[in-house]
Computed example of a mutant assay.
Amino acid sequence: MSNVSQRVAIVTGGSGGIGSTAARRLAADGFAVVVHYAGKPAPAEETVKKIRATGGLATAFQADVAEESEARALFQHAEDEYGHVDVVVHTAGIMPLAPITAMDLETFDRVVRTNLRGTFVVDRLAAQHVRAGGAIINFSTSVTRLQIPAYGAYAASKGGVEALTLILARELRGRDITVNAVAPGPTATPLFFEGKSQEAIDNLAMANPMERLGTAKDVSEVVAFLAGPGRWVNGQVVYTNGGMA
């Protein structure tokens, strides 16, 4: 049965490091959470299990976020389970790294499909389903302004995410829905560590004045703010990187 006072969040990529932590953080704030995953169900089910163990409400749902019919089914699942949607946190993304001259077009197309087209599909559905007083929170990256070699395709896709975010915020004028993007710096997640040497990891950790990598918890606190009390933050890219340039 629908409970109109129950706040409901969809977290895409909810089986990943940042997504899972954000889902659990929102559940701690009282949200019912739909934990989306793209491939393996076990990590998403584990996130659901942890939320339920603390008395929260959560379900898991599989979808390809770049495929409109599947993404639409994700939103329908949230409404079938809980009656409505208040917040969409779109963390789902991929990050294959290679110099621009070395990356094949198939990989580039896959990055754009998942990161940029996926955001377009999810944002369009979120704009149709999120209730007044809600929030749409996309994920970009601090690399869009750091120009780190080998991140060309990833940064290009996330630059597009930022453009969609800023324009959608203005297109939703009068709806009382905020639209922002969180742009983490180097964050200690499996996605970040993949394919990096220890030297590269150490160098990135020292690149901010805090002299450490960010954590999924650091990022999830920003998500919780934008999903809750941060109602006067709208149409912004929030760089979440410990002061990295």
Rank of each mutant, 00 (worst) to 15 (best):
V179Y: 03
V11K: 03
A38Q: 11
G56C: 09
L57N: 12
T54S: 15
R170N: 13
Q128A: 15
R175E: 13
R110P: 00
A205K: 09
Q198H: 12
V182E: 07
R131Q: 14
A216K: 04
I10N: 06
G55N: 07
T21H: 12
G17S: 08
A9F: 05
G55W: 08
G14V: 03
G134D: 05
S157Q: 05
I136R: 05
L226K: 04
A245R: 14
G56I: 05
G243F: 02
V179G: 04
T119V: 13
K50Q: 15
I10H: 07
V87K: 00
F225R: 00
A169L: 01
G19V: 03
R117T: 14
G242R: 02
G39W: 04
E67N: 11
V89A: 11
P96G: 04
T187Q: 05
G83N: 11
A78Y: 01
W232F: 14
A38C: 05
S5V: 11
K217V: 15
A227V: 10
N241S: 10
A23R: 07
A155M: 05
N115I: 02
L191G: 10
L125W: 08
N203G: 12
Q62C: 13
T240P: 00
A53N: 11
Y151I: 09
V182H: 01
F225H: 04
E79Q: 15
A22N: 08
A227Y: 09
T107E: 12
A135V: 05
V88A: 06
G14E: 01
G174Q: 04
G13R: 01
D176F: 11
F193W: 07
